[in-house]
Write a protein that binds this DNA or RNA. Structure first.
Length: 546
RNA sequence: GCGCCGGUAGCUCAGUUGGAUAGAGCAUCAGCCUUCUAAGCUGAGGGUCGUGGGUUCAAAUCCCGCCCGGCGUACCA
């Protein structure tokens, strides 16, 4: 909000000087002596204008028409930075504006009339979710929330693969356990099967329902096991997601692409565009023709498509469904498919600029400095559910959000279990609870609050710092969404909480004179709304008491 | 071999798209509760930004080489 105000002024001045080819940067100086806001515009213009930065800076200032009651100081510093210092009056007006937004502070209309689809989790129903899926789920869910706050119409979608090899593997694994339990303890378990104990549980549940009537290992019977396993796992997955406050309303399954003939149609279209050929009994995609390194197999010699084909068909569907933006959340292990899919979809005539692919790196779980292994197939998996049982959904969400998506995330189980000030989640929630506590006390004591609020009573430095920080909130939401980086928001909330705790220690509310009391109370309320809105977006609860 | 991501304080990580004296949390040390919740606040120490070059008024940030770690490079998804 502050930046917008100042950049408009600067644009006017530059227009007067007939300078039109520039990029305007406004930064918050690290050093307080350098004002509230700073621009390097004069330095970047030095070369094209062939003038000294200081001269240009002076020219700009001379042409700047501003309200002296709002900006208290403008100076040229260093090699040509222009530093602006705002007056208390400016912040008071800012706070008035923010107060008018009420509960909706932070909501925007940038995405009005635009449809976005965010695809996340998308784990195949071959087992329960683990920590890696968790990161995917939380990033996707939070981005979806951010889009909603920007005014987009958001579809939250889960794509799952219920055809193909992995699912047959699941069926065979369940079947083997089934036989082991029923009639043959030595029945061979498939080498690349799913070794987790949950498979045994699925087999037991299966027996309870169906008994021994599907004892023959026919293809038809295996399908029965597959269906049963798929549903069993899916119920578990949905349940886990629910516990994490992740709610997807749209499910897209791979099978439907076959059933509706979409795969066949796609192959046909690719063939017509001369993007496929046959070799060694398989059908290949001519990806080299589209500028990629190697051609890849689209249909195996078995007649079954590789994952690529349905992936392409699915993305084609997303375009046809009319979304303005398409967001995919993938783990780093899926990175190989991205160029193939995008290049092919583009060749089919779609604008792939609409697609944003968010690749997140892996998560490692550590306990007492030791890494805890989490492999689904080996069976020694630490499931997301177990983690939620141990530390709670708020902590899981926050820990999975608080790093940039591009860095490996170390989930420290000891720190997460810590129910104390060491745990960063509580720091934010505590700020919220503290404000609740004050508001509660005001209510209990039936202190009369006058309706007229005079923000000019707020003159302490912490008070102005707090207002300044609060005013950044809408921009933070925008940035976090634009850059696909939820941690921008969690970092911001930490900083906001710090300033609030600071304010809390320096400034009393209850017991101050009427004018100050009312102004500070309102400031605290607005802080609370900001924290609440931020936590809502992160999908974390805001406790009234701690 | 090739491709993608990362290497910043003892540990985990930020770093506003090239800006001013590189930051935070945890850990360590020293202080602050008869006052709205001490799950808080104040202060101190701690750095060859992996490494070698280059680009310019200015590089943790951009370009090139090298080293280390993760992932990928399937007719698995």
């Amino acid at each position: 909000m502050i930046k917008t105000y100042l950049s408009n002024l600067l644009k006017e001045a530059l227009e007067k000087l007939k300078i039109d080819n520039y990029t305007l940067n406004l930064d918050y100086p690290k050093n307080l002596e350098n004002g509230d806001l700073s621009t390097n515009i004069a330095m970047t213009l030095a070369k094209p204008l062939k003038k000294s930065p200081k001269q240009i800076a002076q020219d700009i200032i001379d042409n700047l028409h501003y309200d002296k009651s709002l900006i208290s100081k403008i100076e040229i510093a260093g090699n040509g930075f222009i530093n602006f210092t705002f007056s208390a009056v400016f912040y008071h007006k800012l706070l008035e504006q923010i107060a008018n937004y009420g509960q909706n502070f932070g909501k925007q209309e940038i995405g009005k009339d635009k449809k976005v689809i965010v695809e996340y989790v998308s784990a195949n129903p071959t087992g329960l979710l683990h920590l890696g899926h968790g990161r995917n789920a939380i990033i996707g869910d939070t981005l979806a929330n951010l889009y909603e706050w920007l005014g987009y119409d958001v579809t939250r979608e889960y794509y799952f693969n219920n055809a193909g090899n992995q699912m047959r593997n699941l069926a065979k694994s369940i079947y083997a356990r089934y036989r082991q339990i029923l009639d043959n303890p030595n029945y061979p378990f498939p080498e690349d099967g799913y070794f987790g104990d949950y498979i045994i549980q699925i087999a037991k549940d299966f027996i309870a329902k169906n008994g021994d009537k599907v004892i023959e290992a026919t293809d038809e019977n295996l399908k029965v096991f597959q269906k049963f396993g798929e549903e069993w796992n899916f119920i578990g997955i949905k349940n886990t997601l629910n516990r994490l406050n992740v709610n997807q309303s749209s499910y897209f399954n791979e099978n439907s692409l076959y059933e509706d003939g979409k795969i066949k149609a796609l192959l046909e279209e690719l063939h017509q565009k001369d993007l496929t050929y046959e070799k060694d009994g398989a059908i290949w995609l001519k990806l080299t023709k589209l500028g990629l390194e190697d051609d890849r197999v689209a249909v195996k010699t078995t007649g079954e498509p590789t994952y690529r084909l349905p992936d392409i068909a699915y993305h084609r569907e997303k375009f046809l469904r009319g979304f303005d933006e398409i967001v995919d959340i993938f783990g780093a292990d899926h990175i190989a498919t991205v160029p193939d899919v995008l290049a092919t979809v583009k060749a089919l005539g779609f604008d792939t600029k609409k697609v944003k692919v968010v690749i997140h790196q892996f998560v490692t779980l550590t306990e007492n400095g030791q890494q805890v292994k989490m492999s689904k197939r080996s069976g020694k998996s630490y499931t997301l559910d177990e983690l939620i049982d141990e530390v709670g959904a708020d902590v899981v969400r926050f820990f999975l959000l608080m790093r940039g998506v591009n860095t490996h995330l170390e989930f420290d189980l000891n720190l997460a279990k810590e129910q104390s000030d060491k745990n960063p989640v509580f720091y934010l929630q505590y700020a919220y609870a503290r404000i609740s506590s004050i508001l509660q006390k005001v209510k209990e004591q039936e202190i009369s609050i006058s309706n007229s609020i005079d923000f000019s009573k707020l003159q302490e430095k912490v008070e102005l710092d707090l207002i300044k920080k609060i005013s950044d909130f809408p921009k933070i939401i925008y940035d976090a969404c634009e850059k696909n980086e939820p941690h921008i928001l969690s970092d911001y909330l930490k900083e906001l909480s710090t300033i609030f705790h600071n304010f809390y220690h320096h400034c009393r509310i209850i017991g101050e004179s009427e004018g100050i009391f009312v102004a500070r109370l309102k400031l605290a309320q607005i802080t609370q709304i900001t924290i609440k809105n931020g936590l809502d977006i992160l999908g974390i609860s805001s406790p009234e008491k701690m």
